[in-house]
């Protein structure tokens, strides 16, 4: 295994996690394809998982990994429900362009 205590590894881990979270946030807010928006949500969840695993290993805490397992499960459920909703929206409108949905705009 790679030397864990080196602060360089920690820095890179945090840089990757923060960058992935930022990228996911950009994609979530800016992309118009609903499927890609869901993928960006998964990316954000994964970046949080990376931080959780890193902290759990560094602080020798089991709870972090338990939380990661729960996050993965909830993410899977969320993806399934989201894709079901996208399929339904496609049946309603014939597109997955998020800008074409404004039923709830009021």
């Amino acid at each position: 295994m790679i030397s864990l205590a080196s602060s360089n590894t920690i820095f890179w881990t945090h840089a990757v996690a923060f960058s992935l979270f930022s990228l996911g946030l950009i994609g979530f807010l800016v992309r118009r394809n609903a499927i890609v928006v869901l993928m960006c949500v998964e990316m954000m969840l994964n970046s949080v998982n990376l931080i959780l695993v890193e902290m759990a290993t560094r602080m020798n805490a089991t709870e972090g990994l338990i939380l990661v397992i729960f996050t993965i499960t909830v993410a899977a459920a969320e993806a399934a429900v989201g894709l079901g909703m996208i399929l339904n929206l496609y049946r309603l409108k014939g597109t997955v362009d998020l800008d074409s949905f404004h039923v709830l705009k009021g």
Partner: peptide, 27 residues
């Protein structure tokens, strides 16, 4: 691979099985 670097083979396995194996296939 990152999870393996951080000494968590269980999470790495779950990541490949659930995310790469199930969720992306669903997408």
């Amino acid at each position: 691979i990152w999870f393996l670097v951080w000494e968590s083979p269980l999470i790495a396995m779950l990541q490949i099985l659930i995310y790469a194996g199930a969720i992306v296939v669903l997408f």
